[in-house]
């Protein structure tokens, strides 16, 4: 697995968490990711991920009029999406624990 692929998997999970919190649109998600420190990731990266998540039925979208510019696409999680998020959280906690354990032990 290349580094970018690993990163995508992580962003996938974070997007699910962000959408789960509140129905939101692309730009908002990118901003939030940036605020959380993912600023090395270019903002557009989220769209191919959202497209895949929508195809896989993890998210659904509705279009609403926006104040300026074209209609805006708002995303929300489906039942499958919530399940995927729960699985991601579990996987991440396991990974975090393992990595921390390695670092702690080996760096002593």
């Amino acid at each position: 697995m290349s580094q970018t692929q690993m990163m995508k998997g992580i962003i996938d999970g974070c997007l699910l968490a962000i959408i789960d919190g509140n129905e939101c649109y692309g730009y908002e998600m990118a901003e939030r990711l940036g605020d959380y420190g993912f600023d090395a990731v270019s903002e557009g990266t989220i769209y191919p991920l959202l497209m895949r998540m929508q195809r896989e039925g993890l998210v659904t979208s509705v279009r609403r009029a926006s104040t300026a510019g074209p209609q805006r696409k708002y995303y929300s999680l489906t039942k499958e999406g919530k399940q995927a998020l729960a699985e991601f959280i579990l996987r991440w906690q396991q990974l975090e624990k393992s990595v921390n354990a390695v670092l702690k032990k080996e760096m002593e």
Binding site: G26, E43, G44, Y47, G69, Q71, K73
Partner: peptide, 27 residues
């Protein structure tokens, strides 16, 4: 149309906040 409209919306908001397209689509 769907994806280009979505990106157009993103670019409009990003440019309004002083970001350049390179920050959105990458290198």
């Amino acid at each position: 149309k769907e994806i280009t409209t979505e990106l157009e919306d993103h670019l409009i908001e990003a440019e309004a906040n002083g970001k350049s397209i390179d920050q959105i689509v990458g290198d």
